[in-house]
Protein backbone atom coordinates (compact mmCIF):
# COMPACT_ATOMS: atom_id res chain seq x y z
CA UNK A 1 0.00 0.00 0.00
CA UNK A 2 2.82 2.47 -0.74
CA UNK A 3 0.74 4.18 -3.41
CA UNK A 4 -1.87 5.44 -0.96
CA UNK A 5 0.22 8.00 1.01
CA UNK A 6 1.71 9.23 -2.28
CA UNK A 7 -1.73 9.62 -3.84
CA UNK A 8 -3.04 11.45 -0.77
CA UNK A 9 -0.10 13.82 -0.52
CA UNK A 10 -0.46 14.48 -4.25
CA UNK A 11 -4.15 15.21 -3.80
CA UNK A 12 -3.40 17.49 -0.83
CA UNK A 13 -0.92 19.56 -2.83
CA UNK A 14 -3.37 19.46 -5.75
CA UNK A 15 -6.09 20.79 -3.42
CA UNK A 16 -3.97 23.84 -2.60
CA UNK A 17 -3.38 24.41 -6.33
CA UNK A 18 -7.11 23.93 -6.86
CA UNK A 19 -8.12 26.63 -4.36
CA UNK A 20 -5.78 29.12 -6.06
CA UNK A 21 -6.80 27.85 -9.51
CA UNK A 22 -10.49 28.29 -8.66
CA UNK A 23 -9.79 31.81 -7.39
CA UNK A 24 -8.05 32.65 -10.68
CA UNK A 25 -10.95 31.27 -12.74
CA UNK A 26 -13.56 33.15 -10.67
CA UNK A 27 -11.72 36.44 -11.18
CA UNK A 28 -11.12 35.69 -14.84
CA UNK A 29 -14.83 35.10 -15.37
CA UNK A 30 -15.65 38.49 -13.84
CA UNK A 31 -12.73 40.73 -14.89
CA UNK A 32 -11.26 38.82 -17.86
CA UNK A 33 -7.75 38.85 -16.45
CA UNK A 34 -5.34 36.51 -14.69
CA UNK A 35 -4.76 37.98 -11.25
CA UNK A 36 -1.01 37.64 -10.71
CA UNK A 37 -1.42 39.09 -7.21
CA UNK A 38 -3.59 36.14 -6.10
CA UNK A 39 -0.74 34.27 -4.45
CA UNK A 40 0.54 37.40 -2.71
CA UNK A 41 -2.95 38.15 -1.34
CA UNK A 42 -2.88 34.62 0.10
CA UNK A 43 0.61 35.14 1.53
CA UNK A 44 -0.35 38.49 3.06
CA UNK A 45 -3.53 37.00 4.55
CA UNK A 46 -1.52 34.13 6.03
CA UNK A 47 0.86 36.61 7.70
CA UNK A 48 -2.12 38.50 9.14
CA UNK A 49 -3.53 35.19 10.39
CA UNK A 50 -0.22 34.32 12.00
CA UNK A 51 -0.12 37.70 13.74
CA UNK A 52 -3.69 37.16 14.96
CA UNK A 53 -2.64 33.78 16.33
CA UNK A 54 0.39 35.16 18.13
CA UNK A 55 -0.96 38.51 19.29
CA UNK A 56 -4.60 37.78 20.12
CA UNK A 57 -4.05 34.14 20.99
CA UNK A 58 -7.02 33.01 18.92
CA UNK A 59 -7.40 29.24 18.45
CA UNK A 60 -6.18 27.94 15.07
CA UNK A 61 -9.64 26.77 14.03
CA UNK A 62 -11.15 30.21 14.62
CA UNK A 63 -8.48 31.79 12.43
CA UNK A 64 -9.25 29.26 9.68
CA UNK A 65 -12.96 30.13 9.91
CA UNK A 66 -12.24 33.87 9.87
CA UNK A 67 -9.96 33.56 6.83
CA UNK A 68 -12.77 33.40 4.28
CA UNK A 69 -14.74 36.50 5.39
CA UNK A 70 -11.61 38.58 6.09
CA UNK A 71 -10.09 37.57 2.77
CA UNK A 72 -13.39 38.45 1.13
CA UNK A 73 -13.26 41.99 2.49
CA UNK A 74 -9.66 42.46 1.36
CA UNK A 75 -10.39 41.19 -2.15
CA UNK A 76 -13.55 43.27 -2.54
CA UNK A 77 -11.69 46.37 -1.36
CA UNK A 78 -8.86 45.77 -3.85
CA UNK A 79 -11.37 45.47 -6.67
CA UNK A 80 -13.15 48.67 -5.72
CA UNK A 81 -9.97 50.73 -5.33
CA UNK A 82 -7.64 49.37 -8.01
CA UNK A 83 -9.61 47.45 -10.64
CA UNK A 84 -13.02 49.07 -11.03
CA UNK A 85 -11.72 52.48 -12.20
CA UNK A 86 -9.89 50.91 -15.17
CA UNK A 87 -12.14 47.94 -15.90
CA UNK A 88 -13.34 49.55 -19.14
CA UNK A 89 -9.77 49.78 -20.46
CA UNK A 90 -7.72 47.08 -22.20
CA UNK A 91 -7.47 43.79 -20.23
CA UNK A 92 -3.67 43.96 -20.52
CA UNK A 93 -3.67 47.13 -18.40
CA UNK A 94 -5.62 45.31 -15.69
CA UNK A 95 -3.03 42.53 -15.91
CA UNK A 96 -0.22 45.03 -15.27
CA UNK A 97 -2.16 46.45 -12.30
CA UNK A 98 -2.33 42.95 -10.79
CA UNK A 99 1.45 42.72 -11.32
CA UNK A 100 1.78 46.05 -9.54
CA UNK A 101 -0.30 44.69 -6.66
CA UNK A 102 1.97 41.63 -6.64
CA UNK A 103 5.03 43.83 -6.02
CA UNK A 104 3.19 45.97 -3.46
CA UNK A 105 1.99 43.05 -1.33
CA UNK A 106 5.24 41.14 -1.71
CA UNK A 107 7.41 44.01 -0.53
CA UNK A 108 4.94 45.19 2.11
CA UNK A 109 5.08 41.73 3.73
CA UNK A 110 8.87 41.95 3.75
CA UNK A 111 8.80 45.42 5.30
CA UNK A 112 6.25 44.52 8.02
CA UNK A 113 7.29 40.98 8.93
CA UNK A 114 10.89 40.77 7.69
CA UNK A 115 12.36 38.24 5.31
CA UNK A 116 12.86 35.27 7.65
CA UNK A 117 10.55 32.27 7.44
CA UNK A 118 8.08 31.76 10.32
CA UNK A 119 6.63 28.51 11.59
CA UNK A 120 2.84 28.19 11.45
CA UNK A 121 1.15 25.96 14.09
CA UNK A 122 -0.36 22.72 12.76
CA UNK A 123 -4.06 22.76 12.03
CA UNK A 124 -4.36 18.99 12.27
CA UNK A 125 -2.77 16.27 14.46
CA UNK A 126 0.78 15.48 13.37
CA UNK A 127 0.84 11.73 14.31
CA UNK A 128 0.42 9.63 11.13
CA UNK A 129 -2.65 7.41 11.22
CA UNK A 130 -2.84 3.91 9.80
CA UNK A 131 -5.25 3.43 6.93
CA UNK A 132 -5.37 -0.03 5.31
CA UNK A 133 -1.83 -0.76 6.49
CA UNK A 134 -0.29 2.48 5.26
CA UNK A 135 0.78 5.48 7.34
CA UNK A 136 -1.21 8.52 6.22
CA UNK A 137 -0.61 12.09 7.33
CA UNK A 138 -3.70 13.68 8.91
CA UNK A 139 -2.62 17.03 7.46
CA UNK A 140 -3.10 15.68 3.93
CA UNK A 141 -6.53 14.32 4.81
CA UNK A 142 -7.48 17.58 6.52
CA UNK A 143 -6.43 19.73 3.53
CA UNK A 144 -8.37 17.49 1.14
CA UNK A 145 -11.43 17.58 3.42
CA UNK A 146 -11.46 21.38 3.82
CA UNK A 147 -11.02 21.79 0.06
CA UNK A 148 -13.82 19.35 -0.74
CA UNK A 149 -16.16 21.20 1.64
CA UNK A 150 -15.29 24.53 0.00
CA UNK A 151 -15.76 23.09 -3.49
CA UNK A 152 -19.16 21.67 -2.55
CA UNK A 153 -20.16 25.03 -1.09
CA UNK A 154 -19.02 26.81 -4.26
CA UNK A 155 -20.98 24.34 -6.39
CA UNK A 156 -24.16 24.89 -4.35
CA UNK A 157 -23.62 28.65 -4.45
CA UNK A 158 -23.10 28.92 -8.20
CA UNK A 159 -25.66 26.32 -9.29
CA UNK A 160 -28.44 26.68 -6.75
CA UNK A 161 -28.41 30.15 -5.24
CA UNK A 162 -29.99 33.22 -6.76
CA UNK A 163 -26.86 35.35 -6.55
CA UNK A 164 -24.65 32.54 -7.87
CA UNK A 165 -26.87 32.23 -10.93
CA UNK A 166 -26.72 35.99 -11.39
CA UNK A 167 -22.92 35.83 -11.29
CA UNK A 168 -22.86 33.12 -13.95
CA UNK A 169 -25.22 35.16 -16.09
CA UNK A 170 -23.05 38.27 -15.73
CA UNK A 171 -20.03 36.31 -16.90
CA UNK A 172 -21.80 34.71 -19.88
CA UNK A 173 -23.41 37.85 -21.24
CA UNK A 174 -22.90 41.04 -19.22
CA UNK A 175 -25.20 43.04 -21.48
CA UNK A 176 -28.18 40.71 -21.19
CA UNK A 177 -27.51 40.27 -17.48
CA UNK A 178 -27.66 44.03 -16.97
CA UNK A 179 -31.01 44.11 -18.79
CA UNK A 180 -32.28 41.48 -16.35
CA UNK A 181 -31.45 43.82 -13.48
CA UNK A 182 -28.17 42.26 -12.34
CA UNK A 183 -25.62 44.77 -11.06
CA UNK A 184 -22.71 43.50 -13.17
CA UNK A 185 -20.25 45.89 -11.53
CA UNK A 186 -21.03 44.51 -8.10
CA UNK A 187 -20.58 40.95 -9.39
CA UNK A 188 -16.93 41.77 -10.14
CA UNK A 189 -16.43 43.04 -6.58
CA UNK A 190 -18.01 39.91 -5.11
CA UNK A 191 -15.90 37.70 -7.40
CA UNK A 192 -12.69 39.36 -6.23
CA UNK A 193 -13.82 38.95 -2.64
CA UNK A 194 -14.67 35.30 -3.08
CA UNK A 195 -11.38 34.62 -4.85
CA UNK A 196 -9.33 36.38 -2.16
CA UNK A 197 -11.18 34.47 0.58
CA UNK A 198 -10.40 31.13 -1.09
CA UNK A 199 -6.75 32.01 -1.56
CA UNK A 200 -6.25 33.10 2.06
CA UNK A 201 -7.69 29.74 3.14
CA UNK A 202 -5.24 27.98 0.80
CA UNK A 203 -2.35 29.95 2.29
CA UNK A 204 -3.33 28.99 5.85
CA UNK A 205 -3.75 25.34 4.84
CA UNK A 206 -0.31 25.08 3.23
CA UNK A 207 1.51 27.24 5.83
CA UNK A 208 2.07 24.52 8.48
CA UNK A 209 3.64 22.23 5.85
CA UNK A 210 6.03 24.79 4.41
CA UNK A 211 6.96 28.00 6.23
CA UNK A 212 5.36 31.41 6.18
CA UNK A 213 7.57 33.75 4.21
CA UNK A 214 7.38 36.33 1.49
CA UNK A 215 8.00 33.82 -1.31
CA UNK A 216 5.70 31.05 -0.07
CA UNK A 217 3.00 31.33 -2.74
CA UNK A 218 5.01 32.17 -5.86
CA UNK A 219 5.40 28.64 -7.18
CA UNK A 220 1.92 27.70 -5.95
CA UNK A 221 0.13 30.38 -7.97
CA UNK A 222 2.03 29.27 -11.07
CA UNK A 223 0.95 25.68 -10.51
CA UNK A 224 -2.61 26.73 -9.75
CA UNK A 225 -2.68 28.69 -13.01
CA UNK A 226 -1.09 25.85 -14.95
CA UNK A 227 -3.40 23.25 -13.40
CA UNK A 228 -6.48 25.33 -14.17
CA UNK A 229 -5.31 25.73 -17.79
CA UNK A 230 -4.64 21.98 -17.94
CA UNK A 231 -8.19 21.19 -16.90
CA UNK A 232 -9.86 24.08 -18.69
CA UNK A 233 -9.77 27.73 -17.65
CA UNK A 234 -13.39 28.43 -18.52
CA UNK A 235 -14.99 25.97 -16.12
CA UNK A 236 -14.66 25.78 -12.34
CA UNK A 237 -14.97 21.97 -12.04
CA UNK A 238 -12.60 21.39 -14.96
CA UNK A 239 -10.03 23.78 -13.48
CA UNK A 240 -10.23 22.09 -10.06
CA UNK A 241 -9.86 18.65 -11.65
CA UNK A 242 -6.84 19.85 -13.63
CA UNK A 243 -5.17 21.15 -10.45
CA UNK A 244 -5.77 17.88 -8.57
CA UNK A 245 -4.39 15.94 -11.55
CA UNK A 246 -1.31 18.18 -11.64
CA UNK A 247 -0.73 17.63 -7.90
CA UNK A 248 -0.94 13.84 -8.20
CA UNK A 249 1.19 13.70 -11.36
CA UNK A 250 3.85 15.82 -9.67
CA UNK A 251 3.87 13.57 -6.62
CA UNK A 252 4.53 10.51 -8.80
CA UNK A 253 7.12 12.23 -11.02
CA UNK A 254 8.74 13.61 -7.86
CA UNK A 255 9.64 10.10 -6.72
CA UNK A 256 11.53 9.58 -9.97
CA UNK A 257 13.23 12.92 -10.55
CA UNK A 258 14.60 16.10 -8.97
CA UNK A 259 12.30 18.98 -8.18
CA UNK A 260 13.44 21.31 -10.99
CA UNK A 261 12.95 18.48 -13.47
CA UNK A 262 9.49 18.00 -11.97
CA UNK A 263 8.50 21.57 -12.91
CA UNK A 264 9.82 21.29 -16.45
CA UNK A 265 8.04 17.97 -16.84
CA UNK A 266 4.76 19.45 -15.65
CA UNK A 267 4.95 22.32 -18.13
CA UNK A 268 6.08 20.14 -21.04
CA UNK A 269 3.06 17.93 -20.35
CA UNK A 270 0.73 20.94 -20.28
CA UNK A 271 2.02 22.23 -23.62
CA UNK A 272 1.46 18.79 -25.11
CA UNK A 273 -2.08 18.66 -23.75
CA UNK A 274 -2.85 22.13 -25.12
CA UNK A 275 -1.66 21.09 -28.58
CA UNK A 276 -4.12 18.18 -28.55
CA UNK A 277 -6.95 19.79 -26.58
CA UNK A 278 -6.72 23.59 -26.86
CA UNK A 279 -9.49 24.23 -24.33
CA UNK A 280 -7.99 22.04 -21.60
CA UNK A 281 -8.47 18.36 -20.81
CA UNK A 282 -12.03 18.52 -19.56
CA UNK A 283 -13.49 21.27 -21.72
CA UNK A 284 -14.60 20.71 -25.27
CA UNK A 285 -13.98 23.67 -27.55
CA UNK A 286 -16.90 24.36 -29.83
CA UNK A 287 -15.63 24.34 -33.38
CA UNK A 288 -16.15 27.69 -35.00
CA UNK A 289 -17.64 27.66 -38.43
CA UNK A 290 -17.90 30.59 -40.77
Amino acid sequence: MTWLPLLLSGLAVGSIYALIGLALVIINKATDVVNFAQGEIAMFGTFVALSALNAAGLPVIVVLLLALPCGFLLGALLELVFIKPISDGPPLNVLIVTLGLFFMFNSLAGIVWGFDPYRFPSLFPTEPIAVAGAAVSPASLGIIAVTLVLMAALYLFFEHSRYGTAMRAASMNPFAARLMGIKVGRVATVSWGLAAGLSVVSGILIAPLTFVDQQMMISIILKGFAGAILGGFTSLPAAAAGCLLLGVTEAYVGTLATSTLKDSFAFALIILVLMLRPGGLFVKVARRKV
Binding site: A226, I229, F267, A268, I270, I271, L274, M275
Partner: peptide
Protein backbone atom coordinates in the same frame (compact mmCIF):
# COMPACT_ATOMS: atom_id res chain seq x y z
CA UNK B 1 4.33 29.57 -32.24
CA UNK B 2 2.99 26.07 -32.87
CA UNK B 3 0.66 26.16 -29.82
CA UNK B 4 -0.32 29.71 -30.84
CA UNK B 5 -1.94 28.20 -33.93
CA UNK B 6 -4.25 26.26 -31.65
CA UNK B 7 -4.68 28.27 -28.47
CA UNK B 8 -4.96 31.93 -27.53
CA UNK B 9 -5.28 34.24 -24.55
CA UNK B 10 -4.48 32.72 -21.18
CA UNK B 11 -3.80 29.31 -22.69
CA UNK B 12 -1.12 30.81 -24.91
CA UNK B 13 0.32 32.67 -21.91
CA UNK B 14 0.84 29.39 -20.06
CA UNK B 15 2.25 27.69 -23.16
CA UNK B 16 4.85 30.44 -23.68
CA UNK B 17 5.68 30.42 -19.97
CA UNK B 18 6.08 26.64 -20.10
CA UNK B 19 8.41 26.85 -23.10
CA UNK B 20 10.64 29.43 -21.45
CA UNK B 21 10.88 27.41 -18.23
CA UNK B 22 11.81 24.29 -20.21
CA UNK B 23 14.35 26.16 -22.37
CA UNK B 24 16.05 27.71 -19.33
CA UNK B 25 16.02 24.35 -17.56
CA UNK B 26 17.73 22.69 -20.54
CA UNK B 27 20.38 25.45 -20.53
CA UNK B 28 20.88 24.93 -16.80
Amino acid sequence: ALPALRVRGHYLAIATLGFSLVIVHILY
